[in-house]
């Protein structure tokens, strides 16, 4: 009983921490979809580029705060380059856009393999050590990632809802043609949203590296997380994304701590539940939502 309480406490604390990061991971992805109706499958790769940029800069002796800023800058430029060089010309076709962004992700994966090999790397944390909360030990750097994620989300919300540029972005998201007819340059708005999305991905990448090692394959998880969050929360809804991030984060952490049942026959073993099932509950939820409420928990059906 005592042990169960400790596990319960850990599940709550860790899911609160990691879910904020998931919300940050999905933020840029949600925005690009909400404003431009583009599913950017290179979003996870942006995070990876951010993480590797910070790691590379750190290895070269740059202070981590400066390295993080560099990661944000590189990802911003990368996102704008991808939009201006490619997406802008194919945006009218959903299929071509999906293929183009996926190709971009795979290309970035190969580039990282060539330069940094497939060996997993570790980004040194902003702050080392850990803190103890009741009976749970938490790595300090993950607490920092949690705080920074929330700060970024709140700042983003204020930007969108309290500034003139934010309103212009909202207007374009709600009706692109209406926006053009009041004199908004829709191309500029798209460029700005891609830049913002890239910046958020760069930041998310640096903090994502506080939970996982760097590898050329690390872009897949954040992409799937973003996709699940956006579908569950309702496409383009910020509030929905945050709630969905917490649902998915909680289910994942819960699964990590759930006991597993092992079936073995001959030399093959099959594990039911447990840590290796981490990604399953969010996918099941994704399928359920698509069946029961295709517009997402907080989405409205678009005409």
């Amino acid at each position: 009983m005592e042990q169960l309480l400790v596990i319960g406490e850990r599940v709550v604390i860790f899911s609160v921490l990691v879910s904020a990061l998931y919300a940050l991971v999905a933020l840029g992805f949600t925005m690009i979809f909400g404003v431009g109706r583009v599913l950017n499958l290179a979003h996870g790769a942006f995070l990876m580029v951010g993480a590797y940029t910070a790691w590379f800069a750190q290895r070269a002796g740059v202070d981590l705060y400066l390295a993080a800023a560099l990661a944000v800058l590189v990802c911003t430029l990368l996102a704008v380059a991808l939009y201006q060089g490619l997406i802008r010309h194919v945006q009218h076709s959903v299929i071509i856009t999906l293929i183009a962004t996926l190709a971009c992700a795979l290309l970035l994966e190969e580039i990282i393999k060539i330069f940094f090999t497939t060996t997993p790397q570790i980004l040194q944390p902003f702050i080392s050590g850990s803190i103890v909360l009741h009976q749970t030990t938490i790595i300090s750097n993950r607490v920092l990632a949690f705080v920074a994620s929330w700060v970024a989300i709140v700042l983003f919300w204020l930007f969108v809802h309290r500034t003139r540029w934010g309103k212009v972005i909202l207007a374009t998201a709600q009706d692109q043609e209406g926006a053009a007819l009041v004199g908004i340059n829709v191309r500029h708005v798209y460029t700005v949203t891609w830049a913002l999305s890239g910046a958020l991905a760069g930041l998310a990448g640096v903090f994502f590296a506080s939970w996982v090692n760097l590898s050329p394959f690390m872009w897949r998880d954040p992409l799937i997380i973003s996709f699940a969050i956006v579908v569950v929360g309702g496409l383009g809804s910020l509030k929905g994304s945050i709630i969905a991030a917490y649902l998915i984060g909680f289910l994942e952490v819960l699964m990590t701590y759930s006991p597993s049942i092992k079936f073995c026959a001959d030399y093959r073993c099959f594990e039911f539940l447990g840590a290796s099932w981490v990604g399953v509950p969010s996918l099941i939820m994704l399928v359920l939502i698509l069946f029961l409420k295709p517009s997402g928990l907080f989405g409205r059906a678009h005409e």
């Binding site: 909202l170 709600q174 009706d175 043609e177 209406g178 926006a179 007819l181």
Partner: peptide, 14 residues
């Protein structure tokens, strides 16, 4: 030159 389009194209959530 300002165009008030067919179908209105308002900003629906504003």
């Amino acid at each position: 030159v300002i165009h008030c389009p067919e179908g209105r194209h308002l900003f629906g959530d504003m």
